[in-house]
């Protein structure tokens, strides 16, 4: 029972991490229809910049986080302006941005290695370790859950209460109609790339503090974000958040009796099961 309780807590923590990645990735995907796989190395870049500022220069971690956010936003905007926008303007076939995104993924991942070196990077930070009965967690874990609640809640409020937020929702529903009614879709696209990329920088910095940064860490991030979006329902940010949380819980609780060597397979099992049973995802119908 103690183990099950610990696995549940682990699942909530991992689920919050995946959910935040799913919301960031899903925001870009739902609004622009661009499968931005380079979201992974943007996540990696953010972690390494945070390491450079806080680990390399020895500055406070909050400054590292700000630098990571600035870097992620800059790279997100650059990805769109330098790569996806020209493809849009030239009316490239829908597959072209996907291929371009994979190319950008490889370029950025290698760039991380060239700029920061390819070894593991850690920030030596003393953080709180807590035991609640048989359950263990750290202050980093609390921040992972807390950052998800704050950022996802803030984003929901922004989308519902502000003019730009409503424009994003309108573009998510129907980009052509949004353009017809006068929404500046170019500006909105830039905005979602900025917000979506910013959302990746927070979990990236927390993973740096928890486990350290490595050049290939972006793959797991974008993959889990992608699975969260598919499970939750393409086009639904609420679905992406729920999909990420479900993924974290199933991945952790599923290993209660299953050997841990199957850990990597569980995300695929969830993905395939959802595609077979409910291809539209958990929330896509609910949103309509």
């Amino acid at each position: 029972m103690d183990l099950l309780l610990q696995l549940f807590v682990n699942g909530v923590i991992n689920g919050a991490h995946y959910a935040l990645l799913g919301v960031g990735f899903g925001l870009i995907f739902a609004t622009t229809r661009i499968v931005h796989f380079a979201y992974g190395p943007v996540f990696t870049f953010a972690a390494y910049v945070a390491w450079g500022v806080s680990g390399g220069l020895g500055l406070p971690i909050w400054l590292g986080l700000i630098a990571a956010i600035a870097c992620a936003v800059g790279l997100g905007l650059l990805s769109y302006l330098a790569l996806y926008r020209p493809l849009e303007v030239n009316r490239a076939p829908p597959l072209a941005p996907l291929i371009a995104s994979l190319g950008l993924y490889i370029v950025l991942e290698n760039l991380v290695g060239i700029l920061f070196g390819t070894g593991v990077r850690v920030v030596d930070l003393d953080y709180g370790i807590y035991f609640l009965g048989p359950v263990f967690f750290t202050s980093i874990h609390l921040w992972q859950v807390g950052s998800f609640v704050i950022l996802a809640g803030g984003l929901a409020l922004f989308l519902r209460r502000t003019r730009y937020g409503k424009a994003i929702l309108a573009m998510t529903d129907d980009p052509d109609m949004a353009r017809i009614i006068g929404i500046d879709t170019f500006k909105i696209t830039l905005l979602v790339f900025a917000i979506g990329s910013m959302l990746s920088a927070v979990p990236a910095t927390l993973i740096l503090l928890k486990d350290g940064a490595s050049t290939h860490m972006g793959f797991a991030a974008v993959f889990m974000g992608f699975v969260a979006v598919i499970v939750g329902g393409v086009g639904s940010l609420r679905g992406a958040a729920a999909g990420g949380m479900l993924l974290g819980l199933v991945e952790s609780l599923g290993l209660w009796q299953i050997p841990t060597e199957w850990q990597q397979s569980i995300a695929f099992v969830v993905l395939y099961a959802m595609i077979l049973i409910r291809p539209e995802g958990l929330f896509s119908m609910a949103r309509r």
Partner: peptide, 21 residues
């Protein structure tokens, strides 16, 4: 307990929880 992790895995909390248990 015999637990496995992928080479370079970032998250091994489940494996460690099972080992502790």
């Amino acid at each position: 307990a015999t637990e496995y992790m992928e080479v370079g895995a970032a998250n091994i909390d489940t494996q460690v929880a099972k080992i502790r248990a």
